[in-house]
């Protein structure tokens, strides 16, 4: 699906948050000089085509008690990576799971999974679960805890 200029404007207007009013799509439509029906219809089509993944409340996991997260990185067999990625991506404590390129020799890892927990030992337990799931297809792994947030802004598009 090709996202046109109007679609882009709808995305930009909605990803920062719908206005908390009784008729939010009407409010977005008014900003963009469209009708509410057109906004909803375009959003529906973008959702059906996977451009919009979901529409909903974005919880602040940190504030809700999920204080620990680890970026887990795994060196898995290339031939199996898509199967393994889908396996790990559906674990309920994994929020993101990606295949990324290795940079040998210093970076042998090709599978990334973000793990969330309320405790640090909880992260370790979850890493063990992933390790068992990957089994013999995993050659080595690391868990990178974050020590500081140096910058965090909402999604936006540069230049």
């Amino acid at each position: 699906m090709i996202v046109d200029e109007v679609d882009k404007q709808i995305i930009l207007a909605t990803q920062a948050g719908l206005p908390l009013v009784a008729q939010p799509y009407q409010a977005i439509a008014a900003q963009l000089d469209l009708t509410a029906e057109e906004v909803m219809q375009r959003m529906r089509i973008m959702q059906e085509n996977g451009i919009i993944r979901r529409v909903g409340a974005v919880p602040n996991h940190y504030k809700l008690g999920y204080r620990y997260n680890g970026m887990t990185v795994w060196d898995v067999v290339d031939e199996q990576i898509d199967y393994l990625g889908q396996l790990i991506g559906q674990l309920d404590f994994v929020s993101h799971c990606y295949h990324r390129p290795r940079h040998l020799p210093e970076w042998p890892y090709n599978l990334f999974a973000m793990v969330h927990s309320k405790t640090k030992t909880g992260v370790t337990e979850k890493v063990n679960i992933i390790s068992q799931e990957l089994g013999e297809f995993n050659r080595q792994q690391e868990v990178l805890y974050s020590t500081r947030i140096l910058k965090k802004t909402g999604l936006r598009i540069g230049r």
Partner: peptide, 22 residues
């Protein structure tokens, strides 16, 4: 929803976009 937003228990109610689309 306003209360959850004010207390930052939710960041927003909005759309989540597929990476590299925008």
């Amino acid at each position: 929803m306003q209360e959850l937003t004010d207390q930052t228990l939710i960041n927003r109610i909005g759309t989540i976009i597929k990476p590299n689309k925008m």
